[in-house]
């Protein structure tokens, strides 16, 4: 061993030690950085969304960006969703107080023993399309026999099961193919009909040259088999203990959606800057389309978030008929409109 080598090793040792200390320090610093919130009077609420920051959750992001929550005395944190944790579990574990879920999917948690209630219905219908290239000849649910249909999982598939059921078709009449949240399989003809959210995947397909001119859309709302999607849910006991806070939160959220619907361009830009999850143009379109489900034609700004009991009941009925839930769920145990009503008065 010459001294040159041992010197080199000493330098290495020091460098390593330094790097490790730096990493430790940096991680400590990162943790302390969290803002404590200046006003002690603000009540903290964390919302867990379903997915990345995007126009789908415009009401929340706009209410945050325009300080509607702060005006109601709320210190808001919006946690974007991801692939490996569900909003239901985050709310159950008190990581978040409010979560976003499909109402259909919320039903499965209610059946599984999670004591949640739906307090605010974002989407007054289903923005989920089933799309097929025109040359496949698929124009309605009746044409799906023997076809390959792309699916994302239980809560999406059940709406298509209801569509098939309307035409007396069942699971065995079609082939389900797992779709990977892109439109690649559709574009490459690996599947005949693809799942596509009107506000997201459909726009991606449009970008790739597939639009109304060469593609058929099966709109579940027009087929009458739609189930309610995005809603806001909370733990029942949390809601009872924090009624005033929840009402204030819903009021601000409602205001956020109203602003987003009236100013989709500005809102889309704001969300783009928050999340950078899609292009600015995409976020603007997404906000606009989602707005059309939050406040459909004929509804007023005052109706935003209202839970339509007939539609909710239909969602429960379909969920039961097509096997998403096994038993019965009583509507009055599943939704609670009182908080929304107080927020709207």
């Amino acid at each position: 061993m010459n001294s040159k080598k041992s010197k080199k090793i000493k330098v290495l040792a020091i460098a390593l030690a330094l790097a490790m200390t730096a990493a430790l320090l940096a991680s400590c610093a990162a943790k302390e950085e969290k803002p404590a919130g200046e006003g002690q009077t603000l009540d903290k609420i964390t919302v867990q969304t379903l997915w990345v920051p995007q126009g789908q959750f415009a009401g929340l992001y706009i209410a945050d960006a325009r300080d509607y929550y702060e005006e109601e005395g709320i210190d808001i944190e919006i946690l974007p969703g991801g692939t490996d944790v569900t909003p239901a579990d985050q709310v159950e574990n008190d990581v978040a107080q409010v979560g976003v879920l499909f109402y259909s999917s919320l039903l499965t948690y209610q059946e599984g023993g999670y004591d949640f209630i739906n307090v605010f219905q974002n989407f007054q219908g289903s923005p989920q399309y089933l799309v097929a290239k025109k040359d496949t000849g698929i124009a309605t649910g009746a044409d799906l026999k023997g076809k390959k249909i792309g699916t994302w999982g239980a809560q999406w598939q059940v709406e298509f099961a209801a569509l098939l059921g309307k035409y007396d078709l069942g699971d065995s009449d079609v082939t389900w193919v797992q779709q990977d949240y892109t439109m690649d399989q559709f574009i490459n003809d690996e599947i005949d009909a693809a799942s596509a959210m009107a506000y997201n995947e459909w726009l991606i397909a449009n970008d790739e040259g597939w639009d109304e001119s060469n593609t058929n859309i099966i709109d579940l709302n027009k087929e009458g088999t739609a189930m309610l999607e995005d809603c806001l849910f909370v733990k029942r006991d949390w809601a009872e203990a924090n009624e005033d806070l929840l009402v204030r939160f819903l009021r601000a959220t409602k205001k956020g959606w109203d602003y987003a619907i009236q100013n989709p361009e500005e809102s889309g830009k704001l969300i783009f800057e928050t999340g950078n999850s899609a292009t600015e143009e995409h976020q603007i379109k997404m906000t606009e389309i989602c707005g059309s489900y939050v406040q459909p034609e004929g509804a007023t700004a005052g109706d935003i978030g209202k839970i339509d009991e007939a539609k909710a009941q239909q969602t429960i009925d379909f969920a039961k008929k097509y096997g998403l839930i096994k038993g019965d769920i009583a509507l009055e145990n599943s939704i609670d409109v009182s908080y929304w009503e107080k927020a709207s008065s």
């Binding site: 569900t86 948690y109 999982g153 239980a154 389900w176 096994k326």
Partner: peptide
């Protein structure tokens, strides 16, 4: 989690753990 199959342990884990009544 990502492939075309609607079968296999991975697919079923994803399918059942992302809803509430089949954990």
């Amino acid at each position: 989690y990502f492939n075309d199959n609607t079968s296999g342990i991975g697919y079923m884990i994803k399918y059942t753990l992302r809803i509430g009544n089949r954990k």
